Amino acid sequence: MAGNSKRRGATRNAGSKKGATVGTGGHGRKALEGKGPTPRAEDRPNHKAYKAKKKAEAEAAKRPQGKGRVTPRDRTSSSNELAIGRNSVLEALRMGVPATTLLVFNRIDADDRVTEIVSLAVENSVPVREVTKATLDGLAGGSPHQGVALEVPPYEYADPEDFVDADGPIAVLDGIQDPRNLGAIMRSAAAFGAAGIVIPERRAAGVTVAAWKVSAGAAARLRVARATNITRTLEAYKKAGRFVIGLDAGGEVDLHESQLLDGPLVIVVGSEGDGISRLVRETCDQIVSIPIGEVESLNASVAASIALYEAGRRLG
């Protein structure tokens, strides 16, 4: 109103911190601008969802890193293993292998093997759990499980000395990396009367679920030992009176011509890519080869099977 502009408080001083503002609309817009969208609960440090997320991230960082999730093939003997497939599970139960849980697909088409599997589990007080196919698929990591899986304790390795006086040849695997090859060799070794198998303690495939599967249950009746030093183990076998032959495509003599197969024997099989290592090769009494046609080489498990068969045949 005219004449009242000098009234105390009618206008703000030019030096006021907020400055002169006409009306209240400006105040309203500033109030509505806010501080951006409300953070999700898991992004707020004081919220329990945030703490749960951080805990999950920490646990994930401790797990093995890879392209996908952890599968049974990533398991080692430091944790429980799974025998999968009807033959493997049935053989393990028949052999009385300690088991913690039997997992069965809840809509399985039961045959004679499934019936015996469940019966043996019940007789041996092994808990039986019905699970979905998705659960078994996840545990098997893509391998065919045929609707059953048996959780077994960590594999108990033997000592290489346990085989010294045993009947049959000893198979020593010098750095086999593929557990499926190990499983195949275990199967052949059990079939042809081997005393046992020796593998390195480090940098080699161990008796995991993949080996269990391929062995078709042989893992339940054939012992596998771990050696800290393969060369020293071979030397100990030689001192005990066993001959040591190594399998190599460029051998000194063909397998069927070797005279060493007629006595106590150790058969050394090299790794899939590099074959027998230098020190192990030098420790062998003889390097033998398996005559083949135009095929460049044999798979390590196939070569081992042929040598084990020939040795078993010689010993009668």
Rank of each mutant, 00 (worst) to 15 (best):
N4I: 06
S5E: 15
S5F: 08
K6T: 14
R8V: 09
A10D: 02
T11Q: 07
R12T: 01
N13M: 01
A14H: 12
R29Q: 14
K30V: 11
K30L: 15
A31S: 13
A31N: 08
R40M: 15
R44E: 09
A52E: 15
A52F: 02
K53D: 04
A56D: 13
A56V: 13
E57M: 14
A61Y: 00
K62M: 10
P64S: 08
Q65I: 10
T71H: 10
P72S: 10
R73A: 14
S77V: 12
S78A: 09
N80A: 04
R86P: 00
A92D: 08
T100V: 01
T101S: 04
N106H: 11
I108T: 05
D109C: 02
D111V: 08
T115N: 15
S125N: 15
P127I: 00
V128I: 13
V131C: 06
G138T: 07
L139M: 10
G141L: 03
G142L: 03
S143N: 12
P144K: 11
G147H: 06
G147Y: 01
V148R: 05
A149V: 12
A149N: 06
L150A: 07
V152K: 02
V152Y: 10
E156G: 11
Y157K: 02
A158G: 12
A166C: 11
A166N: 09
D174T: 01
Q177V: 01
D178A: 04
R180K: 08
S188N: 09
A191G: 14
A191S: 15
G193C: 12
G193S: 11
A195S: 15
I197A: 08
V198A: 04
I199Y: 04
G206D: 14
V209T: 10
V209P: 12
V214S: 02
S215V: 10
S215C: 13
A216E: 10
A218D: 06
A220E: 12
R232V: 04
R232T: 12
E235T: 10
F243R: 09
I245M: 06
G246E: 04
G250V: 07
V253M: 10
L261S: 06
V269Y: 12
S271R: 12
E272N: 03
D274Y: 03
G275R: 11
R281E: 10
Q286C: 08
S289I: 01
V295H: 08
E296I: 11
A304D: 11
A304I: 00
E310P: 06
E310R: 14
R314H: 06
